[in-house]
Structure formats: structure tokens, C-alpha cells
């Protein structure tokens, strides 16, 4: 009943012509026909945000939209975030601050955050929480994610900001001088292949 369709999709700036059953979602076609497996599935029903990609710059749940309806639109996935081999500020911040633990929800959250930062370069914490509130994460407790987005936003604005030491080392233990002296920043210790 559902015939195969052929469509030319523009993903991360590259056009590719793929054939797939007409009832397949954008998520399925990205993962299975375009070999872009960075986009994940967590619930299959639009309830978790793991499959978030950008369509014409806006966040879309790729599990709830048909691939065949996306010809002529600009699709962006996590694979398009880096500039060549150089990670973008959100990616650096997520990697360095522990905003990605298991990393399964990470692609969807990165895309939702990317869409937000393009519109709003200086989002408040509340705004970050709201814009990412459709994305579930079970590892981080979200705090490191919000902190990473704030840091990445500052870097994108061209500010020479580093994360505050309590994000990296915890708060100083009360009543113990030097108990948790801030140490090196991740930029000094992180692997250099950003």
C-alpha cells in the first residue's frame, strides 16, 4: 500500500537522493538511508526529544514527521554541528563539562540548544530550561547541561569565559580552607583535538 518514494533531502548542507517507503519517518530515513545514526530514538512517540533535528533552523521531532515531506527543506543533524574536524562551542562545552554522560540524549539536546542560541545568544537559565524541556536525560540531572549551554553561549558571543570552579570541582567544603582549591580548567587538560 505504501509505495517507495524517491526524495532528494538536503542534510547538513549536502543533497542526497534516497529511496524509502513513503510512510517512513525522517528519523528512520536519516538513520537507515542516509547512515546518519547520530540522531537517536528514545520513545518513538514524541515524548523524549532524543530524535530532535533542525528543519529550516527550528527543532523538530524526527520520529513524528514523514521524510517525504522534507524535500527542499534544510535539515540539520548532530553530524553537521562541527566545522570540519573542529567542534563547535556547544560540543566543546558538553564534552568538557560532563553534560554528556551516556551521550544518548545528547544529539537531540545539542540540536535544541543550537536552535535556541541562534535566536537568543544570551539566554537566561529559565529560558534554557524551557527550550530544552522537551528533551529527557536520565544521567546528568540536567545541571551540567544548563551550565554547558551557558558557557557555550558566552564563547559564541566571543567572551573569554571559563566555567566557574564549582562546576568542575564541587563547592568548597565549608570550614575547610583549601579543601577544594580550584585546579586547572579543562581547556588546559582537555584533549587538544577540538
Amino acid at each position: 500500500m505504501s509505495r517507495a518514494v524517491t526524495a532528494t533531502l538536503r542534510v547538513n548542507g549536502e543533497e542526497r537522493t534516497v529511496a524509502f517507503p513513503g510512510h517512513h519517518t525522517l528519523l528512520e530515513v536519516l538513520r537507515e538511508e542516509c547512515a546518519l545514526t547520530g540522531t537517536k530514538h528514545g520513545c518513538e512517540l514524541g515524548e523524549c526529544g532524543a530524535c530532535t533535528v533542525l528543519v529550516d533552523g527550528r527543532p523538530v521531532l524526527s520520529c513524528l514527521t514523514l521524510a517525504c515531506q522534507h524535500e527542499g527543506r534544510e535539515i540539520e543533524t548532530v553530524e553537521g554541528l562541527a566545522d570540519g574536524n573542529r567542534l563547535g562551542p556547544l560540543q566543546v562545552a558538553f564534552a568538557d563539562l560532563g553534560a554528556a554522560q551516556c551521550g544518548y540524549c545528547t544529539p537531540g539536546i545539542l540540536m535544541a540548544a543550537e536552535a535556541m542560541l541562534r535566536e537568543q545568544p544570551r539566554p537566561s537559565r529559565e529560558r534554557i530550561a524551557e527550550q530544552l524541556s522537551g528533551n529527557l536525560c536520565r544521567c546528568t540531572g540536567y545541571l551540567k547541561i544548563v551550565e554547558a549551554v551557558e558557557w557555550a553561549a558566552a564563547v559564541r558571543r566571543g567572551e573569554d569565559a571559563g566555567p566557574p570552579p564549582e562546576i568542575l570541582f564541587g563547592h568548597p567544603e565549608p570550614g575547610r580552607p583549601g579543601g577544594d582549591a580550584p585546579g586547572r580548567r579543562p581547556s588546559e587538560t582537555a584533549s587538544s583535538n577540538t
Partner: peptide
């Protein structure tokens, strides 16, 4: 993954 069953899409 939970998938859609097949159907015909019309776009009038």
C-alpha cells in the same frame, strides 16, 4: 523501534 504501519499519503 515502534514504526508507522504503511498508508498512502495524499497532499492536496
Amino acid at each position: 523501534m515502534l514504526r508507522l504501519p504503511p498508508f498512502r499519503l495524499r497532499t492536496p
